[in-house]
Each structure stands twice: as C-alpha cells, then as structure tokens.
Design a protein around this nucleic acid. Structure first.
Lengths: 343, 343
DNA sequence: CAATGGTTCTGAAGCGATTCAGTGACGACT
DNA sequence: AGTCGTCACTGAATCGCTTCAGAACCATTG
C-alpha cells in the first residue's frame, strides 16, 4: 500500500522480514518450505513495502510470460464496425484476467507482417501461447506453427481449415442450414447472398455450404462478393434487385451491409419484409436498433473468447486440445424476414 | 530462417560466430565495439540460427519492456457496438508496431479492479507506459499516477479532467458548438439530447457545454441520460416525443441510439428529417448505412490512437508532454437533419 | 543414545540478455 | 624507439527472480 520512491526488490523484503530471499519467494508463491508464521510475516512486509515480483525477472526465471498473443489484421474500418473482434477480446480478456494472464496485441498490416510477428514471438518467447484467426485455405501459418511445437497455438476457424491444430471450431455449415431453412419455411425459393471477400476461409466454407443446402432444397441461389462495406452492400443489393427474377430474400455476411440494404429497399419502394426479406449473418445491437429489426444469426462471441482463453491455458499446461466446438449459432428472428411474396 | 528445435541463446550465436557474447550483443544492437566484418558475420549467423534476444532477459537487463498498457472497462456489449475503442486500438497498434512496441491489454470488471491492475503494472514494471481512459470527475487514478512518477501515463480526456497529467485532449465543447449551431441554423429552437451515463467525465463536459451554448442562443434544451443501449435510446426518444412541445431535433451520444431513434420515428409516423432531425455524436459506417443517413460528429479516432501512441513513446524517452489536442470534430451532414418544421 | 526423518531455512547457481572495465594489437606521431 | 590513442574484443558483473542442494534444528524412534 505504502508508495515507494525507489525500486524495491525481493532482497529488500527479505531483509525487512529477517529471512533470505528464497524464503520470500516460497512465501509469496504459496510453496512449502516456510512456516506459517514466517509466511504471514513476509506477506505482511511485502504488502507494506508495496512489493510485487518484477515481471521480467519472473519471466526469465521460470520461462513463463503469463501473456497470450493476439494479432489483429489491420483494417481499422472493418475492425471498428464489426463487433466480432472486440467481442472476442472481451471474452478473452475476461477469462484471462481471472487467471492473471494478459493479452499481448499487435497489429499486422499484411500477411508477411503477420508471419514476422509470429516468428518474433516464437524466437523471443514474448508470449506463452497465441491465437490464430482469419485462416485462409492452406494458410502457411499452420505450417509455421507445426514447425514450432514449443509454442502452443489455438486456431479459431472451421475445423477443415486447421489441419489438426488445436481448434476452436465454429459450425458455419450448420448456421447456413438454419438460415436457409428459415427462409425456405417462409416460402422463399430464390435467395441470394452478399458475402465478404472471397479469400477468407470462412467465406469459402459458407459458399460451399450455401450451394449444397440450396441445391438440396431446390432453391435458386446466387452469391456476390464484396469488401464488407455498407457501400458495397448497397451496391450488391441494387444489382440483385435488378435481375429477373429478383431474389425474394438476401442474406448478408455482416450487419452493416444488411442495414445498408434496408436503406436501398426503402429508397426503391421495396417493402421489407413484404417484398424482400433481409437477414444478417452477424448479430449486434445494430440489428436490434434497425427498423425493421434485422433477423440475424446470433452467436455468443464473448463466450467463444472465454472458451478460447481457457483452451489456451490448457495448452500452456501441456494438456492436449483437439477440436472444440464454439457455442452454436442461434437464429434471432426479427421483422426483416417474412413470407415470400406471391408471384 | 532455419527452424530450431532447442532454445538458442546469445551464446550459441557467439560460439557459432567465433566471438564472445558481448560482441554479439553489440553487433545486434548496432552499437560500436565490433568491426563491420564481424558485425556482418554475427548478423548472418543469427539469421541462420533464427535467433532473437529473449524478451524477458532483455527486459530485465535494460528495464524496458517495449510494451504499453491499456485497460478495457468490461462491458462487452458496449465495447462491441461502440467503434471507439476498437478504432483507438487500431491507431495505437499501427503506430506502436512501427516502433516495435506492443499493446498489453487487460480487462477490468470495475474500478477497484482497474486500480489493482494499475498497481500491478507499477509494481511489476510490466509496461513502459500506460493509457488512462474514461476518466471520471476527480478520478482517483490521477492521484495514483502522480504518486508514481516513474510510470509514464497519458490521459485521453478533456483537459479539465486530467489535473496536469500529460493529456491527449478532445474538444468536446467545440463539438457541441458545431452540433448546436448546425441545428440552430436550420431553425431549430427546441432541441434535446440523449446522453450516456452521467458518471462519465465526458458526459459531464458535454452536459455543461450544451447548457451553456443553448442558453446563449436562446434555444430550449433538455437532456436524458441512458446506458447507451438502443433500447434505452428508443425509450428516451419516445419520452421526448410525447412532451409538449416536443423537441424538433435530438442529438444522441452514440450511433446505435440514433439508429434506434430512426426506428421509433418510423413506427410512430414521425418523418425524419421533416418532422424530427436526428444527430449522432459518434460517426461510423452505421450512420452512413442507415436510412436516412445520420448526420454525425465525426472525428478521426484512429489518428487519435496514433497520436496517443507517439506521445507515450515520447514520455518513455523522458520528453515532456503537456496537453495535446486531438484532431477536431467535423460535422458530417447527412439526411437525418433538415429545416425545423413550421409550427 | 545414535540413527532417522521432517521441517524450516539459506547460499548459490541458474535464466539470457546488457554493459562496464580492462586487455591486446596496431598504427601514428614525436 | 617509445609513447599514446584508438579500435576490436573479452570476461565478469548485473538485472531480480526461482529453485536446487544442503545445513541446522528439533522431535521421534528402535
């Protein structure tokens, strides 16, 4: 509690408690080797002096940093507007906080950058484990990590992308089923999708699932790829509405695009949901606040973050982790989807 | 490049290059004390062995972590939906990355938590500097930091809240002027505001500025406080619209609430902007995607993050930093504001 | 009573870098 | 030829902690 002008070390605490530095270490870390009375005394003195073990020294001595690495792909626009990353961070942070770990965050401008950050972390041991996000198909980072088995890593992605790495897996295919099924049950037989960039692994997974499910149900399906921005979403919507026959329902890969689509519809006198049903893949406050409220696939991203954190802690402890499923998607039906218009 | 099974240290590099460990250190850090030829040789060997200095050892030896601390207040909902924090992180991350620093992130569940994280960072030297966000009036953290001058800190807040600490200051009062002026010029004489939680320092600053500016202009003004959620925003809107005379313009402290307000208006047959003008304090894709597009106060948060990072690096270098102004707010006029309705 | 065993505690050797003081070697200058 | 200075390099101390091996002490036990 008392604030100290000069740096206080374990030896100061040792001297003040009349024991050796090793005793202090044992006392503080709850290890055997000191009596209860000296332990209490030491803790007391440590508190008075406001002493905590120096992080660097501790890391060096036990080769543990109590840090977990997260690399953010640099696109401020996207990061800011997509609730995904921030939710994940919330979950990670909350869980790690309980275990006294922290999150080390770095930003990569491109994929080379990201590779070099990974190399850096492996070489410098600046983190105890790391998270792999936004995997692409045949992602080279997977091999990098396999060649450095001393650095635990958890991939958050569809299990088909992670080649046996410990994985927190989302079941995007099941979600596709939910979404399509919902629209199918409402009578839609011609649906479209406005997706994100084609290179992203999850775009690909979803593409495949959509094609498969719609084919099975005999539903007409087409897909446009965009850069996730509302402008692109609006543009794609206009194009979709101008073909003949126009889709009666459109699913957007994120919520801003769905919101923009509602605007396009309003401007063009297309009523939602009477003339056009709109769905969003991601759910957020935005979908709730929009008018009409946007039907969305919802998942507990914060919880995913917590699970991811706990899995990494397991990996750090040397436990095996294979593939763990994320909390499943849930369909939140709001007012933007309705029965398909009579033809 | 070559991947190494076992941990490689500076001594391995020294042996392989036929020099001492000190020579390796000098060579790597670009310091004098080695010839150009041995320097080249050492760097070459280091690259071949894939060696980089161990982070903990380096930190311990030079008492520098190359890390900057950021504490996130835990409210996943808010964090996720407000683009502010993620944008700030983007800016911080981008700037820090260039200087080879990283961001150490922890999450606080409440303010006691946050205090103990700060104490921890001060005592363990786990970061070289830290950021102070969401200051409240008379925030105790300011005193904590003043008592520990060895830990550089930068506050991001209105300068009136930071009691002389190095500050990246936003001029919320000027922004209030912009906003009110815009509405005033459109003929509005009865405006309302839906704000965030009253405890937040910036809420208070804005409250005061609004009262002052509207009084000056002879504009009727009232303010409701909420928890920032769209539901609360919608609710506040309904209440405001039911009073007599109802305001002809409402300013919302964030964009989800403004979006929700558009929904409320639509449901109640209130036309935007003919019957009611709506503005948002924060700008994001959401305001652009909404229909009608929401007039908003826009500021370059990413740039603020970059500036904050560079200021902290200055502080770490021992330079003085007083109060630096953030990039100013800019009014982005869209379709949600228009001339005040004739009475 | 010697032997054994169990606590409690200490000294010193790590961890892997940086950095200071010191040693040769060599060239330049008087 | 002798001295000085510079340059390249090395050995050892240092950062602050953990942890192992062993010392000191006391209590049991056969």
């Amino acid at each position: 509690m008392a604030t100290q002008k000069t740096k206080v070390t374990i030896f100061d605490v040792a001297k003040a408690s009349g024991v050796s530095s090793s005793a202090v270490s044992y006392a503080l870390n709850g290890k055997p080797g000191v009596s209860d009375t000296t332990r209490a005394k030491v803790l007391q003195v440590a508190r008075e002096l406001g002493w905590k073990p120096n992080g660097a020294a501790q890391s060096l001595a036990q080769s543990k940093t109590r840090r977990i690495g997260l690399i953010l792909g640099y696109d401020p626009q996207l990061l800011a507007v997509e609730p995904y990353m921030m939710s994940l961070i919330s979950g990670l942070g909350a869980e790690l906080e309980e275990k006294d770990y922290s999150l080390l965050v770095r930003m990569s401008m491109d994929s080379d950058d990201e590779d070099s950050i990974i190399e850096d972390w492996v070489a410098t041991s600046n983190v105890d484990a790391m998270l792999l996000l936004n995997l692409e198909i045949g992602d080279p980072r997977i091999d990098m990590m396999k060649q450095n088995p001393q650095m635990p890593v958890l991939a958050v992605a569809d299990a088909s992308l992670t080649a046996g790495l410990p994985t927190l897996a989302s079941d995007d295919a099941a979600a596709v089923g939910l979404a399509v099924r919902h629209l199918y049950d409402l009578g839609h037989r011609n649906i479209a999708r406005v997706a994100g960039p084609e290179e992203l692994g999850h775009s690909y997974i979803r593409d495949a699932a959509f094609s498969e499910v719609t084919a099975e149900l005999g539903v007409r399906y087409r897909c446009l790829h965009t850069d996730y921005t509302p402008a692109a979403g609006a543009d794609a919507t206009k194009r979709l509405l101008s073909v003949n026959p126009a889709p009666t329902a459109i699913i957007y890969d994120n919520d801003v695009m769905a919101l923009a689509a509602e605007g396009v519809a309003a401007v063009n006198g297309v009523r939602v949901p009477q003339d056009l049903s709109i769905m969003s893949w991601d759910d957020s406050f935005m979908c709730e606040a929009a008018h009409p409220g946007i039907t969305a696939l919802n998942r507990d991203i914060v919880e995913s973050g917590r699970i991811a954190a706990s899995l990494m802690l397991k990996l750090i402890d040397g436990e095996e982790v294979d593939v763990v499923e994320e909390p499943p998607y849930v369909l939140r039906v709001r007012d933007s989807t309705g029965p398909a218009p009579e033809r």
